[in-house]
Amino acid sequence: MSTSTSTQPAAGPGRAAHRNAANPGPGPSFFRVLNSEFIKFRTLLSTLILLVSTAIVVVGFGALSAWGTGQFADQASSDPEAAAAIAAQGGDLAVTVPTSGVAFAQLILGSLGVLLMSSEFTTGMARSTFAAVPKRLPAFIAKLVVVILSAFVVTAVSTYIAGLVAVPILDNFDLKLDLASSQSVKLLLVTSVYVAAVAAIGMALGTMLRNSAGGIMALVGLFFVAPIAFQLIPGDFFEEARKYLPGNTINPLTAVEHVPDTLEVWQAALVLGGWVVVPVVLAMVLLKKRDV
């Protein structure tokens, strides 16, 4: 006979006393954690500032680039040498105009990726986050989804707006830009995926280093310093290794035709994928293992 009700004489008439111990209520399922991470994402002013800055920079550079390209084409029409140079490139100059701000977008959104995780640790928020989700990895993956999606969407939308701004400017110089052409669409999508990948790398760095300045510097080192340093150091090894830096995968990925002595598209995609997967897995292992 069960006499379990009498084993807790101290229990009063409060809510706690008549709760079903076996089923305390909903716990942290993945979609709930994703919702929580999205709330955290949208309730920080600094996040919104970085997203808006990205859009401004991408659109601004698109407009500047449209004007510069137009000027260049104007000169080319009166200078057969320049015209030959354009022809030799084999591509349409105007099509790359909307994505000309990508270098800055990757820096800003990569830093956002770093900050979203490093700030958890610098503010102590991590203790609340991982007390609510003690398995930790669901919270990490949910945040990664939010980071990747937001970086992709912001890059894609601002690139498209940059295109809309560039079209009338290019038109002044009799240059045509068709935003619906397969080349334009491909550039927009590949660039957005690339920036999302950089943001994911940023978040992995933020998780591993747990420090905002350190994470951002690591990201800058990887994407801006290393390519230049590798170029300056003499030797075949560095010349070859340079191709495999994550920041140098974007050119082969967006090239119209394969440029000699660069990675093939599939190779570049694999290299970039590796640069995302390895740090992300490492970050997950460390997050699971270390104390918060």
Binding site: E37, I39, K40, T43
Partner: peptide, 10 residues
């Protein structure tokens, strides 16, 4: 918003 984000997980 802090409490809202915490509450959302459960």
């Amino acid at each position: 918003n802090h409490l809202l984000a915490m509450a959302a997980t459960h």
